[in-house]
Design a binder for these strands. Structure first.
Length: 435
DNA sequence: TATCCACAGGAAATCAGGGTGT
DNA sequence: ACACCCTGATTTCCTGTGGATA
């Protein structure tokens, strides 16, 4: 490993680039493995393409297409299929060119911002500020804009990850307004397309919205291994040079992804990462060992990025769990312990507020949802009901990430004092017997 | 078998920080 | 300057609960 202060050896960057250019070429066009890439052929999605094409075709004649929903787990090609159809629709020889507005409700996450996003996408000149105005004003402005700018045409509103929006407050209201847009429009028509990966989310949907949106829906089933193979073959043809992939490689990637509920995005990511690792190693071909390495690296990258992106308070919660398992490896960690240790270490960092137990409980759930820890609710009888917390991944990875966070580095060797009392130790011994 | 612990987790309120038009 | 808007993070208030213990 290179160290910053080792001046006897310096990385020769010129030589590196020269070798890189001379070395074996793996990729022909690596963009083809991108999740956003829309291929000419979408294998195993004929039924859905036909369905969507039929629903949306009347837009070419100026009629309002029905609103509908698309269901399917992540990586089943929902977004890609919609984009594919929209592209084809735009290529048709028709007077009417529909507008397509994509909104990822995970990114554009509040009612206000959704309205503003739609407005700003259509309007070139006047933009709506990111905050400050009342919602109903924006809504009226949007209606005016649609009538003038999208005149005599159709506006498709695609709401990706719509389930996230519905769970938020005000989410149902904005959806209701959007489904009823047509009633308030004079010169143009609109159609709402919702994309969700949870079937259940219909339960939390306002029945009025369901009636205008949910009656029509298209299901995207998960891909099986052989279908994933077809997808990968199709993309690999474009992405890689000839003969760089070992013949068992694509079946391997497909099999791995098939286990993860047939997620095509994962399969593509895996293939790409394997290719990149082979490229970095200056290998002429991509072999299965690169797939294995890629799998590990993807997993680790994901966790590290996730933790780095967490708010500082959540990182401190994680640090609390880390410190307990580091200094008291056989201690059974419960919510109360985390609260105590958090209170202790947050005092070591200036400007960090004390949190309530309620808030900490939510942070613990978030970490559990991300797969970093497990937090199982268990009743300890007379000792109350609480969560039992354990790390779900190697503590070395946690340590590595926490070391990279400026404000936390300094406290990683702080031994929690609160857990040293006999009272706590005694109680914990009883817990051990109860589990 | 009633009790009671130490929380879980839902709903609503509050606060601070970004903004608006008048 | 003022009244008001939207958002995200957090607090406040609250009701619910599994099962060891008395």
């Amino acid at each position: 490993m290179l160290k910053n202060h080792d001046y006897n050896y310096q990385f020769n960057i010129d030589k590196f680039y020269k070798n890189y250019l001379k070395g074996p070429k793996i990729f022909n066009n690596r963009n083809a493995l991108d999740p956003s890439y829309i291929p000419e052929i979408l294998p195993h999605r004929d039924v859905q393409i036909k369905d969507i094409a039929e629903k949306t075709a009347c837009a070419l004649l100026g009629d309002a297409p029905p609103s509908f929903l698309c269901y399917g787990q992540t990586g089943t090609g929902k977004t890609a299929t919609i984009r594919y159809v929209s592209q084809k629709l735009a290529q048709q020889n028709s007077e009417i060119k529909p507008w397509w507005i994509y909104i990822n409700c995970n990114v554009v996450s509040t009612p206000y911002r959704i309205l503003a996003h739609i407005y700003n996408t259509i309007s070139r000149e006047e933009k709506i500020p990111p905050t400050g105005l009342p919602k109903d004003i924006i809504f009226k402005k949007l209606l005016g804009l649609l009538d003038s700018k999208v005149k005599d045409s159709i506006c498709f509103l695609v709401l990706d990850e719509i389930d996230i929006l519905v769970d938020k407050k005000g989410g149902n209201e904005i959806l209701y307004d959007l489904t009823r847009l047509n009633e308030n429009l004079d010169n143009c028509k609109s159609s709402l397309i919702g994309i969700s990966n949870k079937l259940k989310f219909r339960n939390s949907l306002d029945p009025r919205i369901l009636s205008s949106l949910g009656e029509e829906h298209i299901v995207f089933h998960s891909y099986d291994a052989s279908e994933l193979r077809d997808i990968l073959n199709e993309r690999a043809r474009i992405a890689f040079h000839e003969h760089v992939l070992k013949e068992d490689l694509i079946p391997l990637c497909a099999a791995v992804a098939a286990k993860e509920h047939g997620d095509a995005r994962k399969a593509l990511q895996l293939l790409r990462k394997a290719g990149e690792l082979a490229e970095r190693a200056q290998s002429k071909i991509v072999t299965s060992e690169y797939v294995e390495k890629a799998q590990e690296e993807i997993e680790r990258d994901y966790i590290m990025e996730f933790i780095k992106g967490l708010p500082l308070q959540a990182q401190l919660i994680l640090t609390s769990i880390y410190l307990i398992s580091k200094f008291n490896p056989d201690h059974i960690i419960i919510s109360g312990d985390i609260y105590d240790v958090h209170s202790e270490i947050r005092g070591l960092i200036p400007g960090i507020r004390q949190l309530t137990k309620r808030r900490i409980s939510d942070y613990i759930n978030e970490l559990a949802l991300a797969g970093i820890i497990t937090a199982d609710v268990k009743s300890m009888g007379h000792y109350g009901r609480t969560k039992i917390i354990k790390f779900d991944i190697g503590i070395d990875i946690i340590e590595k990430v926490l070391c990279e966070i400026d404000k936390i580095q300094g406290i990683l060797n702080h031994k929690p004092i609160l857990l040293q009392t006999d009272k706590v130790k005694l109680k914990n011994n009883i817990f051990k017997k109860l589990i």
